[in-house]
Simulated assay, not measured.
Amino acid sequence: MAELTSVLKSSSSDEEILFALRQGAGIAQAVASTITDWSFSGAVSGQYRADLSVNDAVLGAFSGFGCGVLSEESGATGVVPTSPSELGEGLVIVVDPIDGSTNASRGIPWYATALCAVDQHGPRVAVVAQLCAPHVEYVAIRGKGAWRNGLALTAHSERPMAESVIGVSGPPPALRPWWQFRALGSAALDLCLVAEGALDGYLDCDTHGVWDYLASLLICQEAGVHIADAFGRDLCHFGHSERRTPVAARGKENLQALCDLRTASS
């Protein structure tokens, strides 16, 4: 097992960074398992008190690592530049403490913590850890692969759109060229289903913050899935108020079809 140094930076090994992210995910799971109060915080629309509890615990775990953190719930902590290209030797960990909070508040077992370490070249190491049973863990390391519970994720062949099952977020368009769709309520986990081949694609019919999808973006890419913003924007950024429209598919043809569908409905 890798030992964790006191400071994480771009020269840290992938194993050290993964160790840190897993430590954060484990703390998130431990805190989430004790939460009984799923009331709204009252500070931000749609934010639950539980989001803040898990966020505080995860940021506390990362506080000694000397890297920047960009969290959905608390914004930027430490050095977080405008874009990854400005990081130099630094690292930023992008954090979604609970992706799928509303599912959790209703007892729907489909929510996760999503963590992605970013260096000057983009997403480097990612962990998406389900916060409820069966506690599935997805991991990716740039250039080395992606795994589900330790088993390697590999590329799946592209099905015709008419035979595909597509994950969606938000109301789907009236034109639905796929066979079936699923609206499951956690972008991070939904995209991981594309990476493992359970879904054939993903269409964001709304918009998302970078924390919702960045960890899953790396997992998808390392599993051979094509992923892009429907409007051609860079998906890896550090703008807390910025939103993107991630779309994913097993093949380029279906990716383009889903992007065209999304832009036509905007």
Rank of each mutant, 00 (worst) to 15 (best):
Thr36Asp: 08
Val95Thr: 04
Glu72Asp: 11
Ala28Ile: 01
Val54Gln: 00
Arg49Glu: 13
Phe62Arg: 07
Gly60Val: 03
Val58Tyr: 02
Ala20Lys: 05
Glu15Arg: 10
Gly26Gln: 04
Ala32Asp: 10
Val95Met: 02
Thr82Pro: 03
Ala32Tyr: 11
Ala43Asn: 10
Val69Met: 15
Gly26His: 06
Val79Met: 13
Ser83Met: 10
Glu89Thr: 05
Gly66Phe: 09
Gly68Trp: 06
Val58Thr: 03
Glu15Asp: 14
Val80Ala: 01
Glu86Lys: 08
Gly24Trp: 02
Val80Met: 06
Asp37Tyr: 14
Asp51Cys: 13
Glu86Leu: 13
Pro84Ala: 02
Trp38Val: 11
Thr34Ala: 13
Glu73Cys: 08
Ile93Thr: 01
Ala57Phe: 03
Leu59Glu: 06
Val44Phe: 07
Leu59Ile: 07
Arg49Phe: 06
Ile35Thr: 15
Thr77Leu: 13
Leu21Pro: 00
Ile35Met: 11
Glu16Gly: 08
Gly68Ser: 10
Pro84Ser: 00
Gly78His: 08
Phe19Asn: 11
Ser41Arg: 12
Ser63Thr: 09
Thr34His: 00
Ser53Ile: 06
Thr77Asn: 05
Arg49Ser: 06
Ile17Thr: 08
Ser13Thr: 15
Ser33Gln: 09
Thr82Arg: 05
Gly90Glu: 01
Ser53Gly: 03
Asp56Arg: 09
Glu73Asp: 11
Val95Asp: 02
Val31Arg: 00
Ser74Trp: 00
Leu52Tyr: 01
Leu91Asn: 00
Ala20Gly: 07
Glu16Val: 00
Leu70Arg: 07
Gly75Met: 12
Glu86His: 08
Ala76Met: 06
Gly90Ile: 01
Asp51Trp: 12
Gly64Trp: 09
Gly66Asn: 13
Ala32His: 15
Asp51Arg: 13
Asn55Asp: 15
Ala30Trp: 05
Ser45Gln: 10
Ser85Gln: 09
Glu16Ser: 02
Glu86Trp: 04
Phe19Gly: 09
Glu86Ala: 10
Ala61Ile: 03
Ala50Glu: 04
Val31Lys: 02
Arg49Ala: 12
Gly60Glu: 01
Gly75Tyr: 14
Ser33Asn: 11
Ile93Tyr: 04
Gly46Phe: 09
Val79Phe: 15
Gln47Cys: 11
Thr34Asn: 04
Gly26Tyr: 05
Ala25Asp: 00
Leu52Met: 15
Ala43Phe: 06
Asp14Glu: 10
Val31Met: 04
Gly60His: 03
Thr36Phe: 11
Gly78Leu: 13
Ile17Leu: 05
Asp37Ile: 14
Phe19Pro: 02
Asp56Glu: 14
Val92Gly: 03
Leu52Pro: 00
Gly60Leu: 01
Thr34Phe: 00
Phe40Lys: 15
Ser13Asp: 11
Gln29Val: 02
Glu86Val: 05
Ala43Met: 07
Ser33Ile: 07
Ser83Gln: 03
Ala32Gln: 08
Val69Arg: 12
Ala50Gln: 01
Thr82Ala: 07
Phe40Leu: 15
Glu86Met: 09
Arg49Asn: 13
Pro84Leu: 07
Glu72Val: 12
Phe62Glu: 03
Ser45Trp: 12
Leu52Gly: 06
Ser41Cys: 12
Arg49His: 10
Ala25Gln: 01
Trp38Tyr: 15
Val79Asp: 14
Trp38Met: 15
Ser45Thr: 10
Leu91His: 00
Glu72Trp: 07
Gly90Leu: 02
Ile35Gln: 13
Glu15Trp: 02
Leu52Ile: 14
Gly26Thr: 01
Thr36Pro: 03
Tyr48Pro: 06
Gly64Asn: 11
Leu21Gly: 05
Trp38Lys: 13
